[in-house]
Design a protein around this nucleic acid. Structure first.
Ligand code: MN
Ligand code: MN
Ligand code: ZN
Ligand code: ZN
Lengths: 139, 139
DNA sequence: TAATATAATGCAACATTGTTGCAAAATATT
DNA sequence: AATATTTTGCAACAATGTTGCATTATATTA
């Protein structure tokens, strides 16, 4: 089922504001993940830097978007497509960063495989980030 | 085979300086990974912040240490135990971050499993970071 | 719908992290 | 020991992120 941005905001008990509507729409339209800087440049001077930070934080807390751990330690965000809820993310899919065009993809259908940890270690979360050349850049 | 810090520096054609000796020694002694801030606090006012940044950069370039992509997007470093050389890292092991004590471990003997990517995607690097409770914190 | 209560925004100020240029100091080479 | 080369410390700057607070926008209630 697909929700409009307004429906998504309502469903998460967030008040409907211009910044939230527009930023959420950017994620819906975008193929890849977005960094704070992407949102800032796409929205021009429409919103304050701080508003963007706070909007992203709120969306993460509500389980609307998730952060992506990248090899270069920059912060990127993408829509949650799994059953994420407030304070509980379930994004157990693989992420892909293209070395060539820089796009970061959620590979929603590729799951992180189990690995056997050494005696005594127990896991609650696994993040797998694959780098290489994407679909488009492999022409 | 085990090299002394001085031998390691020589082997990599680096001049022997106080900061390089001491910082490399910190890595050799440390069980887990180190962040810039750890090195700064452990060394007090002995070295300038900039020197620490430059030393870490040099070590990464030479294949002496590698960066660890973490879920919280903070930068950590650990000794390379694989056959890393100048400009070419081969650290294909799993990393573990303890949610409880914060220690980051290189699980040198746990390799990153292959995953099948969607048509058109080709990979050059895979980073798997597992979070949970470590050996010590599971008491 | 209008009045009131609540929440989000913009701004300024600050903190943290990382980078660069350059003179002084340390190390390596002759 | 003298010279060449490299590294260091300092200052200045850039990028990224956080906080407090008055103003503005949204939601609630009458
Ligand atoms: Mn994702
Ligand atoms: Mn490692
Ligand atoms: Zn690409
Ligand atoms: Zn632990």
């Amino acid at each position: 089922m697909l929700y409009s941005t307004i429906e998504t905001l309502k469903k998460n008990q967030l008040s409907i504001t211009d910044s939230r509507k527009k930023i959420l729409e950017m994620f819906v339209r975008s193929k890849g993940a977005l960094a704070h800087a992407d949102i800032e440049s796409q929205s021009g001077t429409e919103f304050d830097r701080v508003t963007i930070y706070r909007t992203l934080q709120t969306f993460v807390e509500k389980g609307i978007i998730h952060t992506i751990p990248t090899a270069d330690n920059s912060v990127r965000y993408a829509l949650c497509k799994d059953a994420c809820t407030e304070g509980h993310h379930r994004d157990d899919h693989v992420h892909f960063m293209c070395d060539h065009c820089g796009t970061t993809y959620c590979l929603d259908h590729v799951h992180v495989p189990k690995v056997s940890l050494p005696e005594g270690f127990t896991s609650t979360q696994m993040d797998l980030v694959v780098s290489g050349k994407c679909m488009k850049c492999n022409h």
